[in-house]
């Protein structure tokens, strides 16, 4: 799952290295429009619909946070 997340993130913002252990939001690697595109990609890749109330910046701050978000929303 982590590798799929990194692949999607890299496709969205190829200029950044998402393997780093840093906060993607605080470092300006993802803005709110990136999150819209990211959620759309994650939804279709994992066959889920991430709950709208979970679409807050902190849930997209790291690969681990995104993984937890996916698991919470039923991704296998």
């Amino acid at each position: 799952m982590e590798q799929q997340i990194i692949r999607i993130l890299t496709e969205l913002r190829p200029e950044f290295d998402f393997n780093q252990n840093i906060n993607f939001i605080e470092e300006g690697m993802l803005d709110s429009f990136d999150i819209v595109n990211l959620v759309s990609e994650l939804d279709s890749t994992f066959g889920i619909s991430i709950d709208g109330v979970d679409i807050v910046p902190e849930n997209f701050s790291s690969v681990e946070a995104i993984k937890n978000l996916l698991l919470k929303n039923g991704a296998k």
Partner: peptide, 24 residues
């Protein structure tokens, strides 16, 4: 902070807050 340019005469939408309010 997000790179939008506005004056105080312009409409402002706090997109994240509005989105979360609607979903909640």
């Amino acid at each position: 902070a997000a790179g939008n340019f506005r004056s105080k005469d312009n409409l402002v939408m706090q997109g994240d807050n509005v989105f979360n309010f609607v979903q909640r």
